[in-house]
Simulated scan of single mutants.
Amino acid sequence: MRALLVVNPKATTTSERARDVLVRALRSEFDLTVQHTRRRGHATTLAREAAAAGVEVLVTLGGDGTINEAVNGLMEGSSPETRPALAVVPGGSTNVFARALGLPKDWAEGTSMILEALHKGRVRTIGLGKADDRYFTFCAGLGLDASVVRRVEQARLRGRTSKPSLYLRSAVNQYFLAMDRRHPAISLERPAEPVEGELSTVIIQNTAPWTYLGDRAIDPNPDASFDLGLDVLALRRLRVPSTARTVTQLLSGRLDPHGPQVLRLHDMSEFTLLASRPQAFQLDGDYLGEREKVRFTSVPAALRVIC
């Protein structure tokens, strides 16, 4: 069986020695080729070329950004009948997608689980989300959460380590100092339904959880699933009392977010977000610039995953 291993050499939780161990383990099961990413977007190119060449399994070693790029390459470069299966070895700081699939955080344990799944023929078919022309595996965001991702990425470029404390400090800073909390700019349109207007920030989930703070799952829409459409959590006005209440509900892990400033939608097949001024935009935890319009669609049964 032919396989390609796409390695992000900047993966934060593996060393060169660990990668060598991984390659040897995979070569015991696959006719394996190894490629290292050299720039942002390179994993998309490698995955597209692998699909066109008839590779049967694509393995990624990296974080959620590497996985997102690889998935987009697979979706662009093949039909459902010929599309390689995806296997993900956790190598990033958070690894939301891998953990949502039930894989352990540790890369060695994850590799062992993937090899076991291969032996037993354990393959799962999952749905994806799509934002305009780009696919995503677990989440997207327009507004506050995306601006936090932007600030964290800027801090990492300055040498900061991606830790829960960095995300929390970035969220507080963006909320109090960078957001226009008095004038919600986003509206949500869906077929045959009234427009939901005056939204300040919108989170979209393709599965649960939305993200992790360390080992704690943060789950605005716990019913979100790879087997269903997209789920939405939107906050209307970001007033301090209502926002603090929603954050408390999220961090408690026991209460689904609710209240007059909260909009939740479940199992959505399509909708469009429109903004009266440019808003920060992220997919799978990668900041992608600012947008004023994004069309979201659910893509069911899109990808086979070895897990």
Rank of each mutant, 00 (worst) to 15 (best):
M1P: 15
L4A: 00
V6I: 09
A11C: 13
L26D: 01
F30D: 00
F30Q: 05
T33Q: 01
T37V: 14
T45M: 13
T45F: 12
V55K: 03
V55A: 00
E56S: 14
L58S: 02
T66G: 03
T66H: 05
V71T: 13
N72R: 09
E76T: 15
E76D: 15
P84N: 04
P84L: 04
V88C: 13
P90N: 10
G91V: 01
G92N: 04
S93L: 02
T94Y: 11
V96T: 12
R99G: 04
G102A: 10
W107E: 06
W107Q: 00
W107F: 13
A108P: 10
G110V: 11
G110F: 10
G110P: 12
A117Y: 03
G121E: 14
K130Q: 15
D132L: 06
S147K: 08
V148L: 12
R150F: 08
R150C: 08
V152N: 05
R158G: 13
R158W: 13
G159E: 00
S162P: 10
K163G: 06
K163F: 07
Y167H: 15
Q174L: 11
L177M: 10
A178G: 03
A178C: 05
R181D: 05
R182Q: 14
H183T: 11
S187D: 14
R190V: 13
P191R: 09
A192S: 12
G197F: 13
G197V: 13
L199Q: 00
V202K: 05
T207R: 11
T207D: 02
A208S: 08
G214N: 07
I218R: 09
D219W: 03
N221A: 09
D227F: 03
L228T: 14
G229M: 01
V232T: 13
A234V: 11
A234T: 09
L235Q: 00
V240D: 10
P241K: 08
T246F: 05
V247K: 11
V247C: 14
T248N: 08
R254M: 13
D256E: 09
G259F: 07
L265Y: 00
R277V: 09
P278V: 15
Q279L: 08
Y287E: 09
E292R: 00
A302F: 12
L303H: 07
